[in-house]
Amino acid sequence: MKSRLDQRFQSFKEQKRGGLITFITAGDPDPDTSARLLARLPAAGADIIELGMPFSDPMADGPAIQESSLRALKAGMTLRKTLKMVEDFRRNDQDTPIILMGYFNPIMAFGVDAFIAEAARVGVDGLILVDLPPEEDREVREPAAAAGMALIRLATPTTDAGRLPRVLENAAGFIYYVSIAGITGTAQAKPEIIDEALAAIRAAMHKTGNLPLAVGFGIKTADDVRRFTQSADAAVVGSAIVQEIKAHLDEEGRAKATLLDAVTDFVHSLAMGTRPQADDRS
């Protein structure tokens, strides 16, 4: 049986369009608002959802996602609650893939085997663990694969031709190309440079088997999404969505009544970048 993730990437090909992957941190700004936002993301145009597992020390993230992580933790979010959030989401949505993204320590504290079993049970499709490079990821990758979940590998501008095969070997789900050497939510790389990097990865994949490519970091608008999905199968937007959440908090950090509509509207506007546009296809 084809996985939810494979089916979704297949559908982009059939529809001749790029995919939109949206990131939010589970529990940001509070567990209830976050769960309601998650439920609304697919209708707003999110094709795949990356759900951040909050961590106290997100060393690869910029200020926007750091703050969202701390907001969630302050509101009492835990890994167990994040898994519960996925379970509730799955009751009404069996099609939208969910990728859990975060750092390894909370999973170690939960217990790797227990986490894999529970994540698979509630309907998680993949994992991105930022601080688990190929050299260290076996203890998660193998049980995840056995449970039908993909441990998604990252490639970056520093991943040179010599190292690329190491990243591609045993890769699953899709390859997440981190477009800048930096943290989330900072600068944006030149599109031509990204095109080149993605072409190099596709060429290298001839040996290891083809996987879809997603590109992330620095993507903020529908135009960005449109541009980057010319060479990638999907574009990831994270910090810009998280900033939109922050923009709709009151002085005490509580969600304003406008938050859900504002964030879903923003995601909807991003999704326009995955649809054919009359004026630029002429």
Binding site: D131, L132, P133, E135, E136, T156, T158, T159, R163, V178
Partner: peptide
């Protein structure tokens, strides 16, 4: 060779840093 002292140590860094660490 991979920086492990028993089950401790290792290289738990983002992929961006891995080539540099190497």
């Amino acid at each position: 060779d991979d920086g492990h002292f028993g089950r401790f140590g290792g290289r738990y860094v983002a992929e961006t840093l891995m080539p540099l660490i190497l």
